[in-house]
Design a protein around this nucleic acid. Structure first.
Lengths: 180, 180
DNA sequence: CCCGAATAGGACATCCGTGTTCTACTTAGG
DNA sequence: CCTAAGTAGAACACGGATGTCCTATTCGGG
């Protein structure tokens, strides 16, 4: 029972925070269809709730990336698999970009950097295999790729790009470029 | 005298908001080296202050883009000029991406869409001239380019990319791609 | 059916940010 | 020098959010 409420609250937070990073406990409680006191009982403080949401999001990203088998096949195809896996859940980790209230968590930062490192390693492999240009800094490609991921999530949300086209378009431009 | 305080407050807000979208009037006043009451006198409400900051940022972006003469020369070179002009001031409009409190302003939305339209027109011209691939949707290129702009500003802020390299690297990947 | 855990809902204290008002001080300009 | 505008600083009212406590109610498993 407690687990069900806890999950409902987390789900509500995931639904609210991306569009309203300052959502109050009361608002979250309403969306979770739960009394406000229940929220305070299951999460000691607002900070703890945000941390739980953030860790949950990172967990899902980790799992999705893990399922992509990024050390299999050409780097470009691995990147496409990652895009296909992450673009659909991009909205979940959009709120991570908002403010200092979340990134103060060392645990979260560590997880994020580990993720970035895995991306970096994939890109380095692509360079070694001769698939990717060695003259583009790896860090820049990592940043640009991550940025493009939730740019795609945004564009889909706002109806400017079709959900099914986004990952392919993203990789197409990132790898082959927009010029003729 | 009033103008000087007003500018100090706007500058302080521009400095604070990107990293703390919920910065209070008191915090802004401290950074501006001004009494809190002065802030309330020069800006009726917090909302009005945010609006002024946002409009100011858009003004600077508009001016910078205007100076790029985007209808001159090949589209790719025009995009590079835009990147060179906007990346250095990218941090100023990063806070525009935060929450609903700013985008509720119709005036701001209009300005933003006009800007996006100009970018779109430039890309369309690039396609007509045969410089850009017609199979990539214009809207997607606009989104990706804007996203990459403040991704670059971030990467510079955090020391992962050199300020002088960023615009070139951005255009290089966006136009020619990262694959060999 | 019954008991215990979980929850709803109300009341309350507390803190923080906003916005207002007043007074005293500073400063620029005539 | 003197006046008027601008400013600082303190005090206050107000609202909203957080966090806590208590009680009645519900709900599920034994």
């Amino acid at each position: 029972m407690s687990d069900k409420s806890r999950q409902a609250i987390l789900d509500a937070a995931v639904a609210l925070l991306p569009t309203n990073s300052g959502a109050s406990m009361a608002e979250i409680a309403v969306v979770a269809d739960v009394a406000r006191t229940t929220v305070h009982r299951l999460f000691t403080s607002r900070e703890e709730l945000l941390a739980a949401v953030a860790i949950g999001a990172i967990d899902r990203i980790d799992a999705a990336v893990l399922a992509c088998q990024i050390d299999q096949g050409p780097a470009g195809e691995a990147l496409l698999r990652i895009a296909e896996a992450l673009v659909p859940i991009g909205h979940e980790f959009r709120f991570l970009e908002v403010g200092p209230q979340v990134w103060k968590l060392d645990a979260l930062n560590d997880r994020w950097y580990r993720l970035a490192d895995r991306l970096g390693a994939l890109i380095e492999r692509g360079k070694r295999d001769g698939d990717l240009r060695p003259d583009i800094p790896t860090a820049w490609l990592v940043d640009l790729f991550s940025s493009a991921l939730w740019c795609a999530a945004d564009s889909i949300d706002e109806g400017r790009v079709a959900r099914n086209d986004a990952p392919r378009l993203l990789i197409e431009v990132l790898l082959r470029g927009a010029s003729t």
